[in-house]
């Protein structure tokens, strides 16, 4: 790591770091107020609990779904959420960028659960970071952050010992949208409340100002739908309690549960889809003209060299 530069301009550094994030694909980026984070987050989940000499928390957001994704069946939409890894990659890069450019220790903030607090408690609240960095505001949909321009995003955070000027939270909260207020006036519920498959959302809207009054979120009910890891031990317990062989077989291998094992397998990097032995011996897969990356590289190099030689030849 480069030695810390004594003449770092925090304004210039902030601009450069946020620019870096956006260049790499973030839609928005900002710096959260560390003191505010500490006032909101409980002990054990404050940035200094992870990085003792942290001075700044940088938050960035990447796009969630493409526009087309909103029309796909729900069973497919569940597979569309992996763009958050793009955010984590940018945050990782930003941490390296800060260390390389300014010589100041930085980390990418893991988005994972706290092993010391069970699987429903994160190490850090990326939501609080993003909210205070001014790149999202809490919605009636279980406090999912929304942005007036970019809508729904995934967030990632960078902790750094570089002191940067914090941004302000968003001036206005885009939720609820005017159409949602209209629906609320009509039926007492917003679309997110009405169409939630487990009915875990509830709340109230100030019908005069159109602002949120109360947001109620039954996270436990939401988790029953969305946190399928908990279904795995529940399924095993069902199998243990099963009255007979057929019921035990159903508990472990009926289609609903078997897909869990598939997801576990895929998630753990185990075999899924293919073992690739058939492709290993396939002449098309292995020996098609441009199947070999080395050949592709060689071809590209020859092309480049030919292009470079052409002006010289023309001149001669």
């Amino acid at each position: 790591m480069a030695k810390p530069k004594r003449d770092i301009d925090p304004v210039e550094a902030k601009t450069a770091i946020l620019d870096y994030c956006k260049r790499k694909g973030a839609l928005v980026a900002g710096v959260a107020d560390l003191d505010a984070i500490n006032r909101i987050c409980p002990p054990g989940h404050r940035p200094a609990d992870m990085m003792p000499r942290v001075k700044s928390v940088i938050s960035l957001g990447v796009g969630g779904q493409t526009q087309g994704a909103w029309s796909v069946p729900a069973k497919a939409l569940g597979y569309f959420g992996s763009t958050e890894t793009r955010g984590y990659t940018i945050a990782y890069g930003a941490a390296f960028y800060i260390e390389n450019k300014y010589g100041v220790p930085s980390i990418y903030c893991p988005p994972d659960m706290d092993p010391d607090a069970g699987p429903r408690v994160p190490l850090q609240s990326l939501k609080v970071h993003a909210e205070l960095a001014g790149i999202g505001a809490r919605s009636l949909a279980g406090d999912i952050l929304l942005h007036p321009e970019f809508g729904y995003m995934y967030f990632a955070s960078v902790f750094t010992e570089l002191e940067l000027e914090p941004d302000a939270p968003l001036e206005t909260n885009p939720c609820p949208a005017p159409s949602c207020v209209s629906m609320y006036k009509s039926i007492g519920r917003t679309p997110c409340m009405k169409f939630c498959p487990v009915q875990c959302l509830d709340g109230e809207v100030d019908t005069e100002t159109g602002a949120q009054k109360v947001m109620r979120y039954d996270m436990a009910a939401c988790a029953e739908m969305t946190q399928q890891f908990e279904t795995v031990p529940a399924t095993l317990m069902d199998a243990m309690k099963a009255e007979d062989e057929a019921a035990r077989e159903d508990a472990l291998f009926d289609p609903d549960n078997k897909i869990l094992w598939y997801k576990l397998s895929a998630g753990s990097g185990g075999l899924f889809a293919q073992c690739f032995e058939c492709m290993r011996v396939c002449p098309i897969a292995t020996k098609a003209p441009m199947a070999d990356p080395i050949l592709r590289y060689d071809a590209a190099r020859e092309e480049r060299e030919r292009a470079e030689a052409m002006p010289k030849a023309a001149a001669e």
Partner: peptide, 20 residues
């Protein structure tokens, strides 16, 4: 616990610490 969450208004965004 966080299993049930109720928020009134928008205290975090507004940094309304009394409400928080």
């Amino acid at each position: 616990s966080h299993n049930h969450q109720v928020r009134e208004g928008d205290p975090y965004r507004l940094k309304n610490w009394d409400e928080v």
